[in-house]
């Protein structure tokens, strides 16, 4: 009897095992035509795009491939997640006052790694249309690839907040893998630092005060318009603060964002920037500034500030996404 029970148990186990290994569906993730260390450029909508277009830029976001096309590491801010602070009268919440200053100055998630599926399909931090891969020229590929691999390894180590103020002063990312308040960068500044900390100092654009003034005014108008009618965002991410419409908070928040952009005064909702922005010179790279100086971007401008000696990146190629797929394996 015991023997029969044992034999039948073995048979049941074998049947289960054969069912388990009869086959299964497996998903192979998406990838892009980038190699480790290449910079990925992306377009987007929103007030940062509006601001950068004043500078003649076309791309609004950038990140770096940290392996052969399956993951991108980049720096971004989910502006929609910044808490709104309200006025209170006798402990009763009334009108919106401002965005949380700490979260505006130190944007999260900051530097993060996303796989291609997530970043192009879920979070939409990157967009395929208008996307491009910045890489060495074919002639320099073998000579430069090891340096770019090192830059990607460096970026894998780095952590930092997204800093709106980095559009005016880019020199604020430390060689650390800790989040430090008041330190961090924006997207292309982070790519720049990945190269810098691995031994390559790329050129940096200097934006004269007149142009910074124009950008600040554009930023102010875009944020107000966004609050009143449309949506916009940081980098690629959409902010939706329509609830502020008609409360008078639109002007305050527009001021707050421009004060943060120009002066890192994230708690200031006054029009401080209007009387001070005229003397500000910005030292920062937008994604387009990572291009060679003689390259024409899709907005028709030669915005890049790099030379053959300041950058490993000499070729802009259209982005190609190789779709992920499910396959059956026996």
């Amino acid at each position: 009897m015991k023997c029969i029970t044992r034999v039948s148990m073995v048979l049941v186990i074998l049947m289960c095992a054969s069912t388990l290994f009869a086959g299964q569906w497996v998903y192979r993730p998406m990838s892009i035509n980038a190699q480790k260390g290449d910079v990925i450029l992306s377009t987007g909508e929103g007030f940062i795009m509006d601001l950068l277009s004043i500078l003649g830029c076309y791309w609004s976001h950038s990140g770096m491939a940290v392996d052969d096309g399956y993951n991108i590491r980049h720096n971004t801010m989910y502006a929609g997640e910044i808490p709104i602070e309200y006025n209170y009268i006798w402990f009763i919440k009334t009108t919106p006052k401002r965005l949380n200053p700490d979260r505006l100055a130190n944007g999260t998630p900051g530097i993060l790694t996303e796989d291609i599926d997530s970043t192009y399909n879920s979070t939409h931090n990157f967009n395929a249309a208008g996307g491009a891969v910045l890489r060495p020229t074919a002639a320099n590929e073998s000579a430069y690839r090891s340096f770019l691999n090192a830059a990607a390894d460096t970026l894998n180590y780095l952590r930092g907040y997204y800093r709106v103020n980095a559009y005016v002063n880019m020199y604020q990312l430390d060689y650390t893998n800790q989040l430090v308040k008041g330190r961090g960068n924006h997207c292309s500044g982070t790519c720049w630092y990945a190269n810098y900390y691995s031994g390559k100092t790329m050129n940096v654009a200097t934006i004269p005060p007149a142009l910074v003034d124009l950008c600040a005014n554009s930023l102010y108008e875009s944020v107000r318009a966004m609050v009143r009618d449309d949506a916009g965002g940081f980098g690629a991410f959409i902010i939706d603060i329509e609830g502020l419409f008609g409360t008078g908070a639109d002007e305050k928040i527009a001021n707050q964002i421009v004060n943060t952009f120009g002066f890192d005064r994230s708690s200031d909702t006054s029009s401080y920037w209007r009387s001070h922005i005229g003397s500000v010179t910005a030292t920062a790279n937008a994604p387009d500034h990572l291009l060679l100086y003689n390259y024409t971007n899709p907005a028709g401008n030669n915005v890049g500030v790099q030379t053959d000696s300041s950058s490993y990146y000499g070729q802009v190629e259209p982005l190609v996404i190789t779709d992920g797929y499910y396959y059956w394996v026996d």
Partner: peptide, 14 residues
Amino acid sequence: SFPNIHYLSRLMGS
């Protein structure tokens, strides 16, 4: 509106 990245690739490398 589409950016013509292929057209531009000739102006940005190859």
